[in-house]
Design a binder for these strands. Structure first.
Length: 412
RNA sequence: CGGGGAGUAGCGCAGUUGGUAGCGCACGCGGUUUGGGACCGCGGGGUCGCAAGUUCGAAUCUUGUCUCCCCGACCA
């Protein structure tokens, strides 16, 4: 990407109505645009990060044999009435509207009911089970108050996955596979070391659901961590969990965290509500066992922006940075930079080429703000030395290296 | 939804005994510059959130309304 072709521009100062660090940095650097409270547009740089996060999640869900689909944002009132959750008293985040003929429709805040409804068409026999599906969807939730930048919006992207099983053991086995897949996912996203599986409320079938909580000052949750046993408990179920798990409160350390995932074992409750039954080997009808598994994609991006930044700007982890290399052109050296740019492209190394007609200082400042992991400078000076200037975003000193060394460095 | 704060140019801000709006950044033109956000000159851009009201006159006073932010509550 040639930066001169990018329509966004960086800001020296963040808009006054943004207090959340993630939104301040992402807006200043040109990753997102705020449409209204709790609703953000994703710009070219932001899309790159978002797609990388999605791709990592996609790959890990595929590993556990889940199949990708896309459901609809418009939802059918009748489907939700089956579970009783069309009611505004039961669900206070509904966005609702009407078709021109007066028919009520809702905007999806989750897809549990619709997916169960849909799967009735495809699951009749034990032979059709197990099955797991997932999607990346924009969820709409009419929150009373949006906050924390892109970490808690009224519109956000979530990966939601649903699995259907013939019996509780099969679901339990899959549930464990999901946990492992989530752990691999958070590792690859660069937040694995700070992310804890946490006992939380909300299990319909089991006593607890499990959240994945990432240490983050901007988070909204507090978990209690037992470092020795590596067990974490959400504050909301602290007393119950201490009792259930035989923990001593004095061994637990409270930590501020942000929820980046939540998985549920619903047992057969929802299938019974919605009427999802299958025929077993004996020819009898049974409700399917359901698991539900979410990862907040845009929230993960916010958490990472929040966690990995310094006084100069964003510091993206390698795997989700919008590019690997930020190539700074200083002076009249376009041809030489173009040559290196093409080599990087051919090597499959995503590069942002700062070919703008600006002073070096501004380019360096933007390189830092945008947070690309590797910075390479080409200037008359470096060309004279027959070298390239290299700097890692996370280090303060730069060094002169030759081209083979650069490619070796980038191949890791 | 309760409490608090704020809406003036794309962004950050100034502008009270009420007198017709200004600064920095950004933007356009010219020139000098060119390795960590340059400098000089000239220039464009604002229904002062919106609507009523008071007044000869309102960014400024009154009322209403919309929006945004923070704390709390809420959060499958």
């Amino acid at each position: 990407m040639r930066l001169s072709h990018n329509f966004t521009k960086t800001l020296r100062e963040a808009p006054a109505d943004e207090v959340a660090l993630n939104a301040q940095l992402l807006i200043r650097a040109g990753f997102v645009y705020k449409e209204m409270a709790g609703a953000y547009a994703y710009l070219p740089l932001g899309i790159r990060v978002l797609e990388k996060i999605k791709q990592i999640v996609r790959e890990e869900m595929n590993v556990i044999d889940s199949q990708e689909i896309i459901m609809t944002s418009l939802q059918n009132k009748a489907v939700w009435e089956k579970s009783g959750r069309w009611s505004d008293e039961k669900v206070d985040v509904w966005f609702k509207s009407k078709l021109q003929d007066g028919t009520d429709v809702g905007f999806g805040w989750t897809h549990e009911e619709p997916i169960i409804e849909m799967m009735q068409q495809y699951i009749q026999s034990y032979k059709d089970l197990p099955v797991s599906v997932y999607q990346f969807q924009t969820k709409m939730r009419n929150e009373l108050r949006a906050k924390s930048g892109i970490m808690r919006g009224r519109e956000f992207i979530m990966k939601d996955m649903y699995s259907f099983h013939a019996n509780t053991e099969d679901l339990a086995g899959y549930y464990d596979k999901v946990i492992q897949a989530y752990e691999r996912t958070y590792d690859r996203l660069g937040i694995g070391d700070d992310t804890y599986m946490t006992f939380a409320s909300g299990g319909a079938f089991t006593k607890f659901s499990h959240e994945f909580q990432t240490i983050c000052d901007a988070g909204e949750d507090v978990i209690y961590l037992h470092r020795g046993k590596n067990i974490a408990v959400n504050e909301e179920v602290l007393d119950e969990a201490i009792e259930e798990l035989g923990l001593d409160k004095k061994d637990l350390e409270p930590i501020k965290t942000a929820e980046v995932g939540n998985i549920f074992n619903f047992g057969t409750q929802k299938s019974e509500e919605m009427g999802l039954y299958f025929t077993d080997q004996a020819g009898t009808q049974n409700p399917a066992y359901l698991g539900s598994y979410g990862i907040g994609i845009t929230r993960v991006m916010g958490v990472i922006a929040e966690k990995f930044s310094d006084e100069h700007g964003l510091v993206w982890p390698n795997n989700i940075a919008p590019a690997r290399v930020y190539l700074v052109q200083i002076g009249d050296v376009e041809n030489q930079v173009n040559e290196l740019y093409n080599k990087l492209q051919q090597a499959g190394i995503e590069t942002i080429w700062d070919d703008r007609d600006m002073r070096p200082g501004e380019k360096f400042a933007d390189a830092d703000l945008i947070g690309i992991p590797h910075r390479v400078v080409v200037s008359p000076k470096t060309l004279e030395a027959g070298k390239l200037e290299y700097k890692s975003r996370s280090k303060s000193e730069s060094q002169l290296i030759d081209e083979p060394t650069l490619f070796k460095l980038l191949s890791v």
